[in-house]
Amino acid sequence: MSDEAPQGVRLEVRRLTKSYNGQPVLHGLDFAVERGEVFVIMGPSGSGKTVLLKHLIGLETPDEGDILIEGEPAGSPGVMERYRMAMVFQSGALLNSLNVGENVGLYLTEHRLKPPAEIARVVAEKLELLGLKGTEEKLPGELSGGMKKRVAIARALVIEPQLIFYDEPTSELDPLIAVTIGQEILRLNHRMRVTSIVVTHDRDLAFGIANRIALLHEGRILAIGTPDAVQADPNPLVQQFLKADFRFNPETSTP
């Protein structure tokens, strides 16, 4: 583990298009995320957020368009090795057959980057950073949803990423833990100066942590900019998404 904090990287998406079985999901998306930025991709369910994220991390191949990391196509040889990236999955995606310590240290163990004693030290350090000290021997099945998410973040941090992706980091969490996770994202961003891309439909989280927000709707970007700029966007679809609430209104409700 180097003492020097990793520097974030710039990511650029150009004309990204994807269809499944002839059904377009992403329509020529164009945007850029600057180094060290917290960029939130927001949108209702089915808007293409997760598909976009899978393209950014390299789990899917676009039909058309490019994803550039520091100007280099993400799929070109050596890019994944040169720029360290990590992803925190919505479910945590911890390996259920491994305990917490083995999960967090998996990247270092499998790539043989450090001796076992050093890996154990790094794992303990990352777990402590996320308030999970002493949980190394627990199995993922013994953890709560919030703990799983934090273990997943610890596992991502071990990679010392320059670019970190979060998929719905606050889903299925109570508001207090959701706030804790949001604060963790900001703290890590501040401490390690990584570029963070967060996919969420949680408006509180998005407006609470984002430097910039992109609002996705049916595979197209409806609005992009600072939280204030997005909030002030006159597009009715943007306003509908931002202002939807639970309060019962007899005039707008259908019988």
Binding site: I57, M80, A86, F89, S91, A93, L94, L95, N96, R155
Partner: peptide
């Protein structure tokens, strides 16, 4: 089950 619960995706993102 690892595939369904995204554990394989997690491995890939760790370059494993």
């Amino acid at each position: 089950s690892m595939k369904v619960y995204q554990e394989l995706d997690a491995l890939q993102t760790m370059n494993i």
